[in-house]
């Protein structure tokens, strides 16, 4: 193995990805170091077993290396890895829970907040609290979509790929989510506008 100290002046993901695909171990190590925490954080929201998850992340990277010759270039390394980890978690879990469609009733652990800048008075505090409650009570898939789009910054195409559903399904689920707090948002925004106009 090449000495660890060799410095790799590549920070661009897709470049790193190409080097890794060509068999560069330094690039591979850099990918692991860069993404294992991020993947762990995402995975932990699906499954709260730390050791199980570490195993999943390890397996994803091991498989990545073994399959490197078959892997295509990508601009979205992070989303590629997200999908791989998500898939791995469900696949490993389904081995334990045969007969239970786990990805249907999985929990997606996330606590949404409503940022405080908008909250200016008691009325807004109540409203934002209510919106927060509604957000946090959404079904897992809707929560995951909201999380991926608004927190991780994943575009809808990639969300569809990560969650292995159609893009239309992503938008349908999102629409359902919005429907839940539509009225609260509108009031909140009205309150806000009346205060600031």
């Amino acid at each position: 193995m090449i000495p660890e100290q060799r410095f790799l002046a590549v920070t661009d993901d897709s470049e790193l990805w190409d080097m890794f695909r060509a068999g560069d171990e330094i690039a591979y190590t850099q990918l692991i170091k860069k993404y294992s925490k991020i993947l762990f954080h995402y995975g932990f929201r699906i499954c709260q077993d730390k050791d199980f998850l570490k195993d999943c992340v390890q397996d994803v990277f091991l498989e990545l290396w073994n399959r490197r010759l078959k892997i295509s270039p990508t601009q979205a390394v992070k989303w590629y890895l997200f999908k791989a980890v998500r898939l791995r978690i469900f696949r490993e879990q389904s081995k334990w829970n045969r007969g239970e469609a786990l990805d249907e009733n999985y929990e997606f652990l996330v606590e949404f907040n409503i940022e405080s800048k908008m909250i200016t008075d008691l009325e807004s505090v109540e409203l934002s609290h209510k919106i927060k409650q509604i957000l946090n009570a959404l079904p897992p898939r809707q929560r995951e979509i909201m999380y991926l789009r608004f927190y991780e910054g994943v575009d809808f195409d990639s969300i569809a790929q990560i969650m292995e559903i159609s893009k239309q399904s992503v938008h349908n689920l999102l629409q359902k989510a919005y429907k839940n707090f539509r009225s609260e948002w509108l009031i909140a925004l009205l309150v806000f506008w009346s205060k600031n106009l």
Partner: peptide, 13 residues
């Protein structure tokens, strides 16, 4: 869009 934030996890690597 800008008001939706997420509480970071307590558990990390």
């Amino acid at each position: 869009v800008s008001s939706i934030t997420v509480q970071p996890l307590d558990t990390t690597l």
